[in-house]
Design a protein around this nucleic acid. Structure first.
Lengths: 340, 340
DNA sequence: TATAAAATAGTAACCGCTTACAATTATATC
DNA sequence: GATATAATTGTAAGCGGTTACTATTTTATA
């Protein structure tokens, strides 16, 4: 930190007290025009800017929020973060970014760090939200908004209805005449229903059951939300006994991997196997075949979370602590209608 | 900010002075084992954590760096930021993230904000680095590292050799027998050579000249680094009088757009038109045809920038203020060898 | 045991700002 | 012009730490 003019310097030069200087910079009405002018003049002459740091200490308010996500280089999260940042910018908040890689240790470490930085609140986006992490937050008493995860605890959250989204996607596949439908999901965390993949899997199963279709265990594969994982999972299906006529991948990236596996098996997508993804990343409309997918409103998840957190910080009433944003089915070219 | 125990509370409970408490938490050697224990015990009992805010004020050091990028939701930048964050995490720095959208006003606003937050330094990544912005930084006297842009000013920077990279890519196309090569570039900022596209264009022109190939004006198109832009630019070329046999897009995303334009024109990539991109985003290897491209070490640009900034902040000697990281040509399936 | 040196611990000023409260000055009212 | 009221301004005590300097206690040395 290079030394710069402080409030005393300005006060001295302007021949007023520090209180007056402070008032000028906080737009207090109780300052005479004359005083205001001379303060402003002195400040300009000295290149004075109030220290947000000192102000934060004095006011016990930092106008900063902490942001814990697994990995900013994942396009899903970078879009969420962009939404958060834009809203924060409007309300004059700044964000401290933390990549926790879904590691519980890192998350806790970051939470404590953010707390000792007196952030006004935290937006937490992780694949898991457990009792443990809930207790941590409760202990620390920091305003918290959960993004992308629902919970039964009394914590505000913004999500989409993952189950319904998967249900809709599956119904769409069924409506297109597909019967043997495969799924590539992510970590199920012991089916504990605290994780996207579990919700989505239930949605899938519901739709299948409703349509009276058989669910083949061999067509339900776990993967890692990466292209390579999607590739491997799809390849295993294609080499198996039950050949899928459609595959529902729980992320666009896995869907892309699956499409490549189809090509590499000498088959065509969507002619031989239809693929539906999840997320609607930018890449979904750029690739060939353009990906039919379930769109998540990533930007809005971030934006709404930020707006909600700021309201909570400001002690404003929030109309609804549990926000469920709408998903959308985006139909492109990776699914085909099968003749009955 | 919820109230929590402060250093006085701990001192009182532990029956020592605040100085001793401070020493314990700063691992000062001059504390007896007995005092240390009782302080730690008291701190635990009260749930005390030192306030980084107060410490920063007292020490005039925040262990925070500011990060100004155009747009975190752009995968190039999110990868750079991830590199920065990882290094910062190691050295116990935190980052304040700012999306400036290449707007000069926003950039200046953010710089001033970061300064009044006493960040220890700033990593600045923008498409442009002008006299104006240089002066701003100089005025503010904040340690600065430039990422992704070179400059003649005395400012440390991390870049790749854009000119050489484009030269290499072009040479590769030429070596594959391509002659009528098109280019889709970004903003040229009046050919002022402060912008990636200009450097790359020169590299392209050098290679063409060296090979004695004709450069067709109609095959040099400006676009916006987006898929749609790449699509439009490629479409114009394909509809023009001079048909390109290869196109060099200055970003992977534009390259993908161009590939789609080729398909939509009833042509094939790479059989009819080869495409080479720039960046090597994750998407490049996921799409079909997998994209041949110039790889930028995004993560390393961020990581090296962060490491350099932290060294500067710590007044350590840095061996080289101008770092040029290596690019790599990644050969995949979007370019074909033409028979002579 | 006296004394010097080393190890601990405490006091209080300071970092730069906000703000309650008191003090002063200007304006309005009679 | 005296007095009440409103508008300004200043004083000084925080906010929660660090640290130079001083004071005290221990330990080492003669």
């Amino acid at each position: 930190m290079v030394c710069m003019a402080n409030i005393d310097d300005v006060a001295k030069l302007a021949n007023v007290s520090t209180a007056t200087v402070s008032r000028v910079f906080n737009n207090s009405p109780y300052v005479s025009e004359k005083a205001r002018e001379s303060v402003l003049k002195a400040a300009k002459e000295l290149g004075y800017e109030p220290s947000i740091l000192a102000r934060s200490l004095a006011m016990k308010k930092t106008n900063t929020i902490g942001l814990i996500v697994p990995d900013i280089s994942n396009p899903y999260y970078s879009e969420v973060v962009r939404g958060i940042e834009d809203v924060c910018n409007i309300y004059k908040y700044n964000i401290i970014l933390c990549n926790a890689d879904n590691s519980r240790d890192k998350e806790i470490q970051y939470i404590d760090m953010l707390k000792s930085r007196w952030v006004d609140g935290i937006i937490f986006h992780s694949d898991y939200f457990s009792d443990e992490i809930y207790d941590i937050f409760k202990d620390r008493k920091i305003p918290l908004v959960l993004a992308g995860r629902a919970t039964n605890y009394d914590v505000p959250y913004i999500v989409i209805d993952n189950k319904k989204a998967a249900y809709d996607a599956t119904k769409y596949l069924i409506s297109q005449g597909h019967k043997k439908i495969g799924v590539i999901h992510g970590d199920l965390n012991g089916m504990k229903e605290t994780v996207d993949s579990v919700d989505r899997l239930y949605g899938f199963l519901d739709a299948m059951k409703e349509a009276g279709l058989k669910v083949y265990d061999e067509l339900i594969k776990e993967s890692n939300f990466k292209a390579k994982g999607g590739y491997i999972a799809a390849k295993e299906m294609l080499n198996g006994n039950v050949k899928p006529d459609a595959i529902f991948a729980f992320s666009d990236v896995m869907a892309m991997g699956a499409i490549n596996a189809i090509f590499d098996a000498g088959l065509k997508c969507p002619e031989d196997v239809s693929i539906i993804g999840f997320d609607n990343l930018d890449l979904a409309e750029v690739t060939r075949p353009a990906l039919t997918t379930v769109a998540q409103p990533m930007y809005d998840i971030g934006a709404v979370a930020a707006r909600m957190l700021i309201k909570i910080i400001d002690n404003k009433k929030i109309s609804e602590k549990r926000v469920i944003l709408r998903h959308r089915l985006i139909i492109r070219q990776s699914c085909i209608k099968k003749d009955a």
